[in-house]
């Protein structure tokens, strides 16, 4: 089913505040097998010039996913989530995410394309503090895979 291209350019409402906890950062660092002390030890983080422990460069995916879920769940968009894989992802860090941050995220639909039987949904999540300080811009393309015969692009993860 083709996606509704009228979604291109649409901005979605800002998500509720999500407070970054030290233990969430530790949990995420554990999940990627990273024992860097700057994720875990406030003293090590301060020695590196940070006010508290910071998060790994891909941690903001947690907020991006929550923001994107609002877009994906919109029935008008017509996305079959069971066919969705991740096509690309980019994080631009205006500053590191750190423990104690009270973050909000808003999703934007930047583009919708169809190629080789697959639908490509390009979204952006702007992540800021609740006071409006820019922290991270996440850009992601989700791919809704068409039939196997058409899936010439390989199967992105």
């Amino acid at each position: 089913m083709p996606l509704d291209e009228s979604f291109i350019g649409r901005a979605f409402p800002t998500m509720p505040v999500w407070e970054v906890g030290r233990e969430k950062i530790r949990e995420f660092a554990d999940a990627i097998g990273d024992d860097n002390p700057i994720y875990r030890d406030p003293e090590a983080a301060r020695a590196a010039g940070h006010p508290d422990v910071i998060a790994p460069p891909t941690f903001a995916v947690i907020l991006a996913l929550r923001a994107h879920d609002v877009v994906i769940a919109d029935p008008e968009l017509g996305l079959d989530y069971s066919r969705v894989v991740h096509g690309d992802q980019r994080f631009t860090h205006h500053r590191p995410v750190r423990a104690g941050d009270r973050l909000v995220a808003s999703a934007h639909v930047d583009d919708i394309r169809t190629r080789a039987g697959n639908d490509f949904l390009s979204m952006r999540a702007e992540i800021t503090t609740e006071d409006g300080e820019r922290v991270c811009t996440s850009r992601a393309t989700l791919v809704a895979r068409g039939t196997a015969a058409d899936a010439e692009e390989g199967v992105p993860a």
Partner: peptide
């Protein structure tokens, strides 16, 4: 690099599944 806060921008395309 040691300090993960030094990473300003990081992007990838996912070309094949693991």
């Amino acid at each position: 690099v040691g300090d993960p806060g030094a990473v300003l921008d990081y992007g990838v395309r996912f070309t094949r599944p693991v």
